[in-house]
């Protein structure tokens, strides 16, 4: 196909072009909707602040 043919064909609105055989014309793709990414924060356990494992807790 020549560049001129390519250009002419491309100038037709996608929704007005013939659907490929056996498939309905796909609607123009919608712009992706941005989705907020779930943020995961690393939590560092400060073991020094924890009570000693051998500590005896009062009753």
């Amino acid at each position: 196909m020549s560049k001129l043919e390519d250009k002419l064909t491309a100038s037709i609105k996608p929704g007005q072009r013939k659907a490929p055989a056996g498939k309905p014309e796909a609607p123009a793709a919608a712009a992706p909707v941005p989705v907020a990414k779930a943020s995961v924060k690393a939590v560092v356990l400060d073991t020094a602040a924890l009570p000693h494992p051998d500590r005896v807790w009062p009753d």
Binding site: L8, T9, S11, I12, Q16, K18
Partner: peptide, 15 residues
């Protein structure tokens, strides 16, 4: 005209 010749191909993309 090249445009005249190119039309057939472009029209073939219609229904």
């Amino acid at each position: 005209s090249a445009l005249s010749r190119a039309m057939s191909r472009a029209l073939s993309s219609l229904d």
